[in-house]
Amino acid sequence: MNKLDHLPSKNILSLFMTCGFPTLSQSKKVFHELLSHQPDIIEFGLPFSDPMADGPVIQESSKIALKSKITTKQSLNLIAQLKKGSDKTAFVIMCYLNTVQKYGIQKFIKEIKNIVDGLIIVDLPFEEEKPIKNILDKNNIHLIKLISPMTDQKRSKRLLKEAKGFVYYISATGITGSNKLDYQEINKNVLALKKQTKIPVLVGFGIKSKKDVMAISKNTKADGVIIGSALIQKYFDLKMNFTSYIISLRKFIKEVKI
């Protein structure tokens, strides 16, 4: 069974966090905290040296994780360990193609099979996805589609034809952590996408607060939200005090879980 096929019908919450951030052992605690709130989806970011689609906050988290020398293997082991006892939350890995390619596509997919429900490869566009998608399909892992405001309807129709899991709608043209949200524009685009697919449409990029989450829920027909940079930013706001960080994550997630 793929948990992404059984997402709730509204207010879906997906939380993004970088694996190995700030350190491998602390990262485990962070994910335990996230999982304890039973979000619908967790996105595990695999740190990459050159995350070209990410803003400064996620970049910094990758850099810090890599400083403590985390490997892809360790990230995958961490995800596998966390899987035990988290049967409410769908697991998604978000990464860059070189990480998967270097690990070995077959080997990577074999190791995440039965653990991970979806894979987002940020720099793998529709035009290049075929070889990987074929293997993922055989293993019941959904390759999640990103759609941006630059994607016109003709293109999104092609992209969504075989899409499974959910649609990751990038709410602003920009990198992760950008801050302008135009609800009218988002809603217009979400509605158009919903005409093209039955799977849920989640809005990501730039969602920072309970207010944003409520506004998306109220002003748009999106099925839920993805929060990433805002979760990581707190660590820096709290001057990297890990104990306070966990407490503030707890408070924040309670707020955004509507």
Partner: peptide, 12 residues
């Protein structure tokens, strides 16, 4: 070669 970029850049 190829085009390995995010969907925001792809249409461009």
């Amino acid at each position: 070669g190829g085009m390995y970029v995010s969907e925001t850049l792809m249409p461009l």
